[in-house]
Design a protein around this nucleic acid. Structure first.
Lengths: 211, 211, 211, 211
DNA sequence: GATGAATGAGGGTTCATTCAT
DNA sequence: TATGAATGAACCCTCATTCAT
């Protein structure tokens, strides 16, 4: 929209790269790797197809980079917190952060979801590093269970449950809007959702109420 | 693959139509509407592209039909049950049915997820009928809350939570396998998952334990 | 239209052949030989494509037959009349017959026009017989000129002029309607046109008024 | 044919566009919109199909542009002249210009004829502007009739008559050659035709001879 | 850096026709 | 006769990418 109005504002290389990444995110989120077209990405970024290919290596490569970006963002944002703070505090924070990310960056989540639904053919080769983060979270949870701070449950499944509960508001935003009767332009009631989901998770884990 | 070896096993029209639908489901689940190619669908079904177009009207139309099929299946399978049975029984059944569907028909769920992530451009025009089913579920839940059978919560958000918790095992099957360290060929421990998710939901709703 | 309402009224072979010819005339008039599709012809005739090809040899052949039909019709209808009747009578009759044919059978004329515009590639091989009819007309006209019944002119060009003046109302019916401001459904004022064109031709030939 | 021998004579963009337009004119004149193939147009212009589509938007669009070109050319060339010059002079000029255009640019005329025969589906939406030109001509003719410079007649029909008489030598060039026994390569006797048609028109209108 | 052009493959779809049944 | 199915070519058009300039 904006880039078509103002003609020929020379952009620096990083600016162009950002524009490309944003455009690609939008297209990949909409149509997946195969369905996205370099044409559309170029247009969105205010470039010609030839120009685009000057900046990127290939569509596949661009996709990979973005996927990497998604994973990096998640690692950056979703720290599980300190065990000592207890499950109530840690889980509440975690759910909030995940939900806020879903509200703010739904497209990133959708790209990831798309990749997963296809069996993660591109992500798998990238994922050589060990999953220390999840391991850490599992440890925490087990520790809390042992301490009687939450009910006995499968920690890994808890992580997956939280994942799905929070991811939902990014991937299925449209469905959420439909069910909550919130029109396209209007914002969801984020605090209400955070409160409800948090309560659901805490209760689901049997986290004892603070006294 | 196999079908190219054995020549000319005449199939009846419904058999061919079924093969086409299955192939299309696989392709659409993998690549979405835009990314799926009639070429691939035809090959999967053991047909030439020209042959395929003898049986279908267009790619769009085929997609629509399948989407309709998905919705119909869901309506058929996911009845919410009788209020009188109480939340424990009804929610347990509901969660089980949804999870089993996710385990059995993950592709259908993924097609739906894909459609949703794109803003439901094809589904929306099809959805004229009122959402009586969801309305019914909401009523039930409210009734249970009033009766003190579960804690106070937003019924619609509960429905969405259950949706995401169960849908996860279809859409993110690959992620689930990765986290639970279950190899491609091997089955997930479905009963364990059902038990854990059910417990999580019941606890999350604050459904009182049976005595 | 009619054939889609009444299902399965068995038609005799000639009836079917007639339906095919009519459909083909409509399609060829609209799109020419290359642009017409057997699909459309079959549909118009209430047949399947396979059925159609049972009745016809090929699209080309069908076209040829129809072209033959057009030429035959013209030969049948457009006799130039007797010299003895004089130019006024003969030319008036001739113009009237040609115009009435244009009004009644514009499609036939258009197929012919189309063939001509393409250089008559199909018609030429069919036209081996000598053009005795035109020769006869030229003779008549020359005779009338010698007798002082009309002004001196090139008889062949006169024939071509009459041809174009009359053919116009078939081939350019749409333009005529546009210029005369006659809506699609309504009929042209045929008698007015016949009167005007006849007067124009007679005057153009310098045919002396009857006393 | 020739262009396939000599490789890589780089053409400027306008040159290529011209080649495309000429090729398209030839194909559309031969086969109409539906019957013309981009394949043939590309080949004629010495391009690949993909190349062609780099220069044009679509077949339909190319056709539209050409139709516009035809109409523009006609508007440019066919001015009706000044009333004061009198019918003899004006009509003679007009007939000559129209005939010369038919001789020089028969293909353009045929594309128009083809469009008309199909009911002008593409032209109609383009024709919003008022037909001031025809209105002007009608006025002139009426004026001359009132002044006794020509016989009483329907001015609009006169215009249509002139149209058909002159258009004939473009659309039915092949028939004209056949009847006048002029072989494919050889030119028609244009001056003779102009003289005869002009005389026919003037006489047909009853335009009084100059003294 | 940026642009116009080219390319060969593939996109979805229709073609005229044939062949069993 | 009529029908469903098959076929291989052709339809218009877009694809991702490359290459001179």
């Amino acid at each position: 929209m904006a880039q078509s109005d103002q003609k020929k504002i020379k952009r620096t290389r990083p600016e162009v790269m950002d524009a490309i990444r944003d455009s690609a995110i939008a297209e990949f989120a909409l149509h997946g790797l195969k369905g996205a077209s370099t044409q559309s990405i170029a247009e969105r970024a205010g470039l010609s197809k030839a120009q685009l290919h000057y900046y990127i290596e290939s569509k596949e490569d661009l996709y990979e980079k973005i996927l990497e970006h998604v994973v990096d963002e998640w690692i950056r944002v979703f720290s599980f917190g300190d065990v000592e703070l207890g499950p109530r505090r840690v889980l509440s924070d975690y759910v909030r952060k995940k939900l806020e990310f879903s509200f703010d960056q739904p497209l990133l989540s959708r790209i990831f979801a798309n990749e997963m639904m296809r069996g993660a053919p591109v992500l798998t080769p990238m994922m050589s590093r060990p999953r220390t983060r999840t391991a850490h979270a599992v440890e925490c949870i087990n520790h809390w269970i042992e301490q009687g701070l939450m009910r006995t449950l499968d920690p890994m499944l808890l992580m997956m449950n939280i994942w799905s509960l929070t991811q939902y508001f990014a991937d299925f935003e449209y469905q959420a809007r439909y069910m909550l009767r919130v029109k396209e332009g209007q914002p969801l009631d984020q605090e209400h959702i955070i409160a409800e989901v948090t309560a659901f998770v805490l209760q689901g884990c049997g986290v004892v109420a603070e006294d």
